[in-house]
Simulated scan of single mutants.
Amino acid sequence: MTDGTAMPAPDRPARRPADVRRWRRYLADERAEAATYRDLARRRTGEERAVLLALADAEGRHEQHWLDLLGDDGGRPLRGDLRTRMLGLFARRFGGVFVLALAQRAEARSTYDREEFATPTMAADEQIHEEVVRALATRGRNRMSGTFRAAVFGANDGLVSNLALVLGIGASGVGSQTVLLTGVAGLLAGALSMGAGEFVSVRSQRELLEASTPDPKSAGALPHLDVDANELALVYRARGMAADEAQGRADRVLAGLAATGTLAPEVLHDEPAASDAVSGAAGAEADDDLETHGTAWGAAISSFCFFASGALIPVLPYLLGLTGVQAILVASGLVGLSLLVTGAITGLLSGTSPWTRALRQLAIGFGAAAVTYALGLLFGTSVA
């Protein structure tokens, strides 16, 4: 294969010590990435396992390329860079969508397109690997997106809203006991409100999706339809087919029913037919949407718990007996650190830069808190 052999000697620039060091680093990273994919494959079965093992084989071909280039200069094996080693550690300990999201980021960092000693095939492989891992990670993201959305929103709302509440009340000049009571009240009220809101929101969404799912009982009415009127055609037309196409398909379905008294399995697979008209592709899509949105109770409990945990952090300094500016600074520092962590996790799981998301969360949270703190100072001065 073109990516499994070294570049032809006449086209290869003269090697330099810096080149050898770089190739050895590439070799170490390729070995570490292949090991990561094999570790992930051990936690999976079926097609996902086969895909991950194929990715490991591809990294093995890249490894061989650098081995051929290095020749006798390979030396003792190096360890992969810190990010690649951490990825391998997570793969061995956890697996799951979090590791796949990290692997997606790792594939996106490939520099083979700018490396004169890497083949175009290797650069293309790395780019396609990112899409393969993205597709694998998307399955996990879809399975967790409903509960994860409620958890992230709940934690951030708790952090930001209660920090803003505590700072605003504290800046007005009231006593620390009042600030503490206000913070606890904000925690309980917000957590209950978030939990109830998520339950209603997700439950309503699921009910809408369920209402759009075809009723499988309708298939029992097909043998009794008027062949001349063929109401089945209306189902296909409602699905978006042209009138002639819908009529032709419905005629074929009912003709098959009349001839055999049942639907052959190959008919069910080759075209929508009767069961597809009433419970096929649309039903599968609806099931996927229901899975993506999660359960109402799961979203509500997640939202309640994460809002409460987030809202508790700004109150902690007051619970520990701190007062005044000291309590405000400690609360702000704790919330800032928490915002950075939640933003980074969101960035990692979404396959984007964790630093960008972390700083965005921090800016939004502190921006809201600064506004309420300024208003607290203003109203406190006015009252005084």
Rank of each mutant, 00 (worst) to 15 (best):
W23H: 07
E198C: 02
R83K: 01
F94S: 13
G96R: 03
T119V: 03
D113H: 08
M194Q: 11
R38F: 04
I364P: 00
P13Y: 00
G71I: 00
R93F: 11
A124S: 12
T2C: 02
F366C: 07
L209F: 15
S279Y: 15
A264V: 06
S204W: 00
D270L: 12
E126D: 05
G175Y: 04
S201V: 03
S176E: 10
A41W: 11
H269R: 14
D57K: 11
R252S: 05
V315M: 07
Q361M: 00
L40H: 04
L78N: 01
G283E: 11
V51G: 01
A233R: 10
D289W: 14
P120S: 06
I345L: 11
A368H: 00
T213I: 09
A384E: 13
D287P: 11
H62Q: 13
H224M: 02
A101Q: 09
G333K: 03
A50G: 01
A35D: 14
L187T: 15
V253Y: 07
G294N: 09
T45K: 11
G280L: 04
L167I: 10
D157P: 08
V235Q: 07
Y236T: 10
S172G: 07
L257A: 04
L234W: 06
G310M: 01
L180V: 01
T84C: 08
L234A: 13
F90H: 14
T111N: 08
A243E: 13
V253Q: 02
T111P: 11
A9H: 05
Q247T: 07
A18W: 08
P8T: 00
E245C: 05
Y26G: 06
G197K: 08
A6E: 14
L322C: 11
R15H: 02
S145P: 14
R143I: 04
E33R: 07
R237G: 15
A58Q: 10
L208M: 14
A91V: 10
A34E: 11
P216R: 10
A281T: 15
L320S: 13
A274G: 15
R93N: 05
L257F: 09
R85H: 00
D68I: 00
D72C: 02
R24T: 00
G186F: 13
A101W: 10
D72V: 11
G248E: 04
G197L: 02
S275F: 15
Q326S: 10
V133F: 03
T2R: 08
P314F: 06
D3T: 03
F304L: 15
E59R: 14
D157A: 12
T182Y: 00
A150N: 00
I313Q: 06
N230A: 01
A273I: 03
A185P: 15
W66E: 05
F148R: 14
H65E: 02
L159E: 05
Q127L: 07
R237T: 12
E245T: 13
A101Y: 14
L359S: 04
A250D: 01
Y373F: 14
